[in-house]
Design a protein around this nucleic acid. Structure first.
Lengths: 112, 112
DNA sequence: TTCTCATGCCTCGTCGTGCGAGGTATAGTC
DNA sequence: GACTATACCTCGCACGACGAGGCATGAGAA
């Protein structure tokens, strides 16, 4: 059975990670940095969130990884699988819905 | 010490509840219904989330309540306190930041 | 030399909170 | 007599976000 959609707003980390990886292969540390930069400091993902998330995503078949040595340092590069792409589409759609819902609440000045 | 801001995206229920109550006094059941309607079904708040949230909000001094009997049914009406208004402003600002951050991630097509 | 900082990975334990399920009661309707 | 809508509530779980901490390397400062 597929995971139920959250009624309100969970799983944003999963969304942004998948989205970043949709462009190109990246490694963990790079993801964290890029997220911070691109979101202009609005979003930060701690390593305690990021790495477990990446592992879970891979275990669920949404990501594939390969390790690479650079300057004596190990990098684990991740890329989206087809399932990962589908999952991303779904999450993004969901995000829009939610986000627009919240905007409607925030924006409205009168309610019936 | 005041509560730390969430790094990613928590507390949306609190935000929308406060926002709805910023307009006018409402009771629990009405809040749930209104949220659903105004958000055009995008947002739903279960009673298992709503009522505990309302109690917590009141305990923290962000809401005030009064009970009212209507047709033999008890309604608990809530309204924002000044602190509640300030909290709402803060949460709303935070939401915008986060939300725009996510949009930047979703919208961007290339990253450096 | 040693120290510190940036890079790069990881895990553990906790805490909050979102959420379903369930419980109570009244009024109206089929 | 049953079922729906209204209206409140609590319990307990599960899961996810998070901080703190740990390990290792390379580069530059002191």
């Amino acid at each position: 059975m597929s995971k139920r959609d959250p009624t309100l707003m969970r799983g944003v980390p999963e969304l942004v990670v998948l989205r970043l990886l949709a462009h190109r292969e990246m490694y963990g540390y790079e993801i964290a940095r890029t997220l911070k930069v691109v979101s202009q400091d609005a979003l930060t993902i701690g390593e305690g969130v990021l790495y477990p998330a990446l592992h879970a995503l891979e275990a669920r078949g949404l990501l594939r990884s390969r390790t690479h040595q650079v300057d004596g340092r190990t990098r684990v590069y991740y890329q989206l699988t087809p399932r990962g792409h589908r999952r991303l589409d779904r999450l993004a759609m969901n995000w829009r819905r939610m986000s627009e819902g919240v905007e409607r609440i925030l924006g409205a000045t009168t309610y019936e």
